[in-house]
Design a binder for these strands. Structure first.
Length: 583
DNA sequence: GTAGGGTTAG
């Protein structure tokens, strides 16, 4: 018989607390009983009550309970520090930590782990450094739990070198220690380093757990590395790991962000537990891949039997409406945010609305929307969305006004200059184009360099515009020229080079035909078999000329081409694109 | 006579 079952019975009051659980009203009722029965002097009961109150989300009640105890001991302090950190009240954790020090109660490694986590949640670098010194003084510097927390803290504060230093000095690296560093890399955008470290860990015979897989899958998502992501999924399956919510969601996100939506849906359907994040990931996956209708269907299902949507869910749904031209639906969804769910739309939601109206050609309405929303100064992202719409619909007048305004407010943002110069180019005002370029140069603003990557035989190849660094450069350029020629025969008309149509900041001195995505596609076509789809990841948005050219390439080569750009996916097949040219 | 930590997903 299990010995745990014959542990001594708890007091009735304690059992009542357990029954109440982390629910405020029942807890307060039990509290009243405790007071009436005179057992409110019991530390143990109050400690349990306090942690449950905190878990219930009432930090106020937690404070009241804490200060009802005359001489709090280290046990009570550690409890309140731990639960406030765990249940999302990091600033209170710091407060209780300072109070503890004021009471001259020595902190332990248990105290430190919670406090460091709180500092990480607050991104409070200075504060955390102070705690770190204290850790060393107290002789807790070599505790593996404390070290893992420190690694995570430093990387969340962007102090990468320090995080790595702490990691390198760990005497014994638990899987959690590795995970801290791997996720640190991943969250700071160093996906390749994250994957490298993951492999290094396995070589040292540390078994990855589901958390490790979550991080490495996130790294694959960032890179758009489908083949690698699939092999990680295989590994998860072979290990027989249970697909918990985080792992499943991470898989969905990986497949969606690598362009394989149906596989993402397969994972979604196979999961035992799903939460808001899971649903949002799937909806957003549909939205970014151009499946607006499916996104709306899943959202309807979520409203009917899924978890309650939150503000992030609404960003995904509104983006789906904007990108698919579902104006009527978008208006309804936007209104329902407040009316049905009591959620307050934020800047991201407003941007989606402006984007939606603007793309649909309702420029005046979009303009009105911004004006009514912010009688004073509107947020730059709203004007940026408006500007995109002006360029799309070639509305030079509003476009120039908006762009000039943006240049005033954000003179450091190179994107605004590029947009303005593009609008001038559209209007044929080449003198103005030159002027804007000179302004940029004068302010020594650098444009972002565009590049595209493609994976062939598990190797990643990177191309930038006019790139000639590749060993097979001649072959690639020759093939691309031939390809473009075949496209022209099929009806492709390149954009006139005198008009700069590039959405992003690529040099116009280079011919449009050597944009990085075209180079990567040519390389992919040369190197892979006829049946495979070509998958490209681009760091910026695609220009209209490339978009049009790739449609023709998909016809003349009879290949499916999938391009992930900065914002979303383009699935090219038989001469059309999943974005329906509405991007 | 009270618990037990650090890492993870949109």
């Amino acid at each position: 018989m299990d010995t745990k079952l014959i542990s001594p019975p708890k007091s009735p009051a304690y059992k009542a607390l357990l029954r109440a659980g982390p629910n405020l009203k029942p807890l307060q009722q039990v509290h009243a009983h405790i007071v009436v029965s005179g057992s409110h002097r019991s530390r143990s009961l109050l400690t349990k009550l306090l942690t449950l109150a905190c878990e219930a989300g009432s930090i106020l009640y937690t404070h009241r309970l804490f200060f009802s105890v005359p001489n709090p001991d280290s046990f009570l302090f550690n409890s309140v520090i731990k639960c406030s950190s765990k249940f999302g009240f990091p600033q209170h954790t710091v407060f209780f930590y300072h109070t503890m020090l004021g009471f001259r109660i020595p902190p332990s490694s248990y105290t430190f782990t919670s406090v460091i986590k709180a500092c990480a949640d607050l991104s409070a670098l200075g504060l955390g450094k102070g705690v770190h010194s204290h850790v060393v003084v107290c002789g807790c510097g070599s505790e593996s739990f404390v070290q893992a927390a420190l690694v995570s803290f430093y990387s969340k504060c962007g102090e990468f070198g320090v995080a790595r230093k702490v990691f390198d000095k760990m005497p014994e690296r638990t899987v959690v220690g590795w995970n801290s560093m791997i996720s640190g890399y991943e969250q700071n955008g160093f996906s390749r380093e994250a994957i490298e470290l993951f492999n290094e860990m396995k070589e040292l015979r540390v078994e990855p757990d589901s958390t490790a897989f979550v991080s490495v899958l996130a790294a694959c998502s960032q890179l758009g590395a489908l083949a690698l992501g699939c092999s990680v999924h295989d590994e998860v399956t072979k290990k027989g790991l249970y697909i918990n919510v985080a792992l499943g969601t991470s898989l969905i996100n990986m497949y969606a962000r690598c362009g394989n939506v149906s596989k993402a849906r397969e994972v979604f359907d196979s999961m035992n537990e799903r939460n808001v994040i899971t649903w949002t990931a799937m909806i957003s996956g549909y939205a970014t891949n151009g499946y607006g209708t499916q996104a709306m269907e899943l959202f309807a299902e979520m409203r009917a039997h899924g978890p309650r949507p939150n503000t992030v869910t609404f960003v995904a749904v509104l983006a789906a409406c904007a990108h698919t031209g579902l104006v009527k639906e978008g208006r309804q969804v936007y209104a329902s945010m407040r009316q049905e769910y009591g959620l307050v739309p934020g800047v991201e939601h407003h941007v989606c609305q402006v984007d939606m109206l603007g793309r649909a050609g309702l420029l005046n309405e979009a303009y009105q929307f911004i004006k009514e929303l912010s009688p004073g100064e509107a947020a730059p992202p709203l004007w940026t969305a408006m500007l995109g719409a002006c360029k799309m619909h070639k509305n030079i007048d509003i476009g120039v006004t908006v762009a000039e305004h943006l240049l005033e407010v954000e003179p450091e943002n190179p994107g605004h200059y590029v947009m303005l110069s593009n609008i001038y180019a559209l209007a044929g005002r080449m003198d103005r184009v030159e002027m804007v370029r000179n302004m940029m140069k004068g302010r020594s603003l650098r444009k972002r360099v565009g590049y595209s990557t493609i994976d062939v035989n598990q190797k990643t190849y990177l191309f930038s515009m006019g790139d000639k660094s590749h060993s097979e450069t001649n072959e690639i350029y020759q093939y691309l020229d031939e390809l473009i020629w075949r496209c022209r025969e099929a009806g492709y008309a390149p954009e006139r080079e005198s008009v700069m149509h590039e959405v992003e900041e690529e040099e116009r001195e280079y011919a449009l035909r050597y944009h990085s995505e075209k180079l990567a596609i040519a390389f992919g076509l040369l190197k892979t078999k006829d049946v495979e789809a070509i998958r490209i990841v681009k760091n910026l948005r695609m220009c209209e000329d490339c978009h049009s050219a790739i449609k023709f390439i998909s016809v003349v080569t009879k290949r499916e081409i999938i391009v992930r750009d900065k914002l979303r996916f383009h699935h090219f097949k038989d001469g059309s694109c999943s974005c329906l040219d509405y991007w």
